[in-house]
């Protein structure tokens, strides 16, 4: 199965008696953008947390890029090439924009204690290269932001924090990007800008696949190739946005049955 970047079979997560995610099957081809939608509490974020090793799988399995990642820890999932953002953007607020992005660059930096303390010339080279790369990446999203790389994130508005968070996820060249409600806390116009930026980045990074959780249906309609609708942890529909939007069960899940 070299075609599918991600292949999940029967992914289940139980919390005590509650089944937060119920035998979810999900396949996505390389380079696709998949929308994950559903009412609050339907298991979307749970799916991200299971996939990225924060919660274990209660049942089922996931293969990423031909590898079985079911038992992977968060660190291993990241190293395999999955990076994510968080619903309530989890940035290190006291640290600078550059520092935050470098957290995401972890797997490409040398973390040896000796190398960091004594081989300062080599560290400087790595630092300068990383800075250039991070600078270029941020510039795609917002050129003024790229000139403020060494200011603490705490001083930036929500849209900039989202941009920084996405840069943190992208800096390590992941193969799969998980976006958890990137539009939360932003205006329509800001959301539109951010989506433009994300699409632009995707054109530059070959084969980047994206799964996006989103409540803004406009966003989903515009950028996704395919959607999966969850309700109470179960997949109730799958297809293009038009297909799922016209699905009766989906309408009931969102608007309630007559």
């Amino acid at each position: 199965m070299s075609e599918a970047i991600l292949d999940c079979k029967g992914v289940t997560r139980r919390f005590g008696g509650l089944v937060a995610l119920d035998t979810l099957d999900l396949q996505m081809p390389r380079g696709a953008i998949l929308g994950l939608i559903g009412p609050n509490g339907s298991g979307k974020t749970t799916f991200f947390n299971v996939l990225t090793g924060i919660y274990g799988f209660s049942d089922g399995a996931a293969a990423f890029d031909g590898r079985d990642i079911t038992a992977y820890s968060s660190q291993e999932v990241y190293r395999a090439g999955i990076a994510r953002t968080f619903q309530r953007s989890r940035m290190c607020l006291p640290l600078s924009v550059f520092d935050n992005i470098m957290v995401g660059n972890h797997k490409r930096l040398d973390h040896g204690l000796w190398a960091n303390v004594f081989a300062r010339k080599k560290l400087r080279k790595a630092f300068e290269e990383s800075y250039e790369e991070a600078h270029e990446l941020v510039k795609i999203f917002d050129p003024p932001l790229a000139e403020r790389m060494f200011e603490p994130v705490a001083g930036f508005p929500m849209i900039d924090r989202r941009r920084i968070e996405i840069c943190r996820a992208l800096i390590s060249h992941p193969k799969l990007l998980l976006l958890d409600e990137p539009s939360a806390g932003m205006t329509h116009e800001e959301t539109r800008q951010l989506m433009d930026d994300i699409l632009e980045v995707r054109d530059r990074i070959k084969d980047l696949s994206i799964i996006i959780i989103e409540h803004e249906m406009g966003v989903i309609e515009r950028i996704t190739d395919r959607c999966i609708v969850l309700n109470f942890g179960r997949k109730i529909a799958e297809g293009t946005y038009q297909d799922v939007a016209n699905d009766r069960e989906v309408q009931e899940a969102y608007l309630g049955a007559e």
Binding site: S73, S74, R84, R90, L95, V103, K107
Partner: peptide, 10 residues
């Protein structure tokens, strides 16, 4: 600052 975010980035 954030153990969970840190572990999600390896």
């Amino acid at each position: 600052i954030d153990e969970l975010a840190a572990s999600c980035f390896g």
